[in-house]
Nucleic acid binder design. Structure first.
Lengths: 160, 160
DNA sequence: TCCATTTACTTTGACACTCGAAGTAATATA
DNA sequence: TATATTACTTCGAGTGTCAAAGTAAATGGA
């Protein structure tokens, strides 16, 4: 088998691992990766707006509404009309939301973090360089993702 | 920013690129990545069974049924009772299905393939080694994916 | 041969993610 | 003030996914 095939297979394995992780998260923490990511965004500052989630996750506002519906339903978040601009709805994280975030295993990332940390310094550097190179080859180099291993989040480097 | 963050970000970029590719494919070719992958499996031998698709994509048979329903609805595939074993349903690809496969851009993979092919031999070897290492760190090393950049396909190394 | 088991697949009902289009409410602007 | 823009929700719809239950066919004893 040639190198190209090997590289594609390795990529697929990486994608597959994240997919399986999603199911794991759902089972263990009772929250889906997408909801988890939204909750993370809310948690960053304790509150945010639908618009902001929509922008950062790159999904429509309609999607955010249904997403937040579920978080509210499950007691992880609260909606509150903004006092400053009453068109806005501030979305706040609840105690339970924080707890879920804290307790959710994020097992894929933990696994990776643990193993990565055990590597020699030069090995880490090499892996980072190669991963970045692959990302660039996928033409994903116009985006700037956060250091969280989840579907959804994305930030344009030249964001307004 | 430390190396760990950098590596996670690079991984996220890779995941994100495949996600965006999925939407691109849907827009351009009118077929979703999952359906595309199923069609590819059918196309490999011209026909296959639901069981086989289920096994290779690692989804339940119920999912395969609804997936194939859509392919049949869209004229990409046909069901036909097997003559040998009448419990079975052979799923055949149609002319239109082949055409879709042929014309679908699969842009992410092409992009990657093109750029990867331009690399020096030793660079390719290094990237493969590093990707495989990362895949192993994600604990995905008990699986053996096919050289196709899509969600879904997966094959156990110790498949019966 | 006959019945129980296994195998292959479909149906049903359910949930999550996603969107576009249309609607509501509030702010900004000309 | 009238119009436009912004922020969000609602509604209707498509896709992916599964578990559980059902149907139909083959297989393997007794």
């Amino acid at each position: 088998m040639d190198r190209l095939d090997s590289s594609l297979i390795a990529l697929r394995r990486i994608l597959r691992a994240t997919e399986l992780f999603g199911r794991e998260l759902k089972q263990v923490a009772g929250i889906t990766p997408v909801q988890f990511r939204a909750l993370q965004i809310i948690a960053e500052t304790g509150q945010t707006t639908a618009k902001e989630i929509s922008r950062r996750m790159r999904v429509s506002q309609a999607t955010v509404t249904s997403l937040v519906d579920k978080l509210v339903r499950d007691g992880m978040a609260l909606r509150e009309k903004s006092a400053l601009d009453r068109r806005r709805t501030d979305i706040n994280i609840t105690q339970k939301g924080r707890q879920t975030l804290g307790e959710a295993p994020d097992p894929l990332q933990q696994r990776f973090v643990r193993k990565f940390s055990e590597l020699q310094d030069w090995e880490q550097a090499m892996i980072v360089a190669n991963l970045e190179r692959v990302a660039a080859m996928l033409d994903a180099d116009d985006i700037d993702a956060s250091p969280v291993l989840h579907s959804g989040e994305i930030k344009l480097t030249a964001d307004p």
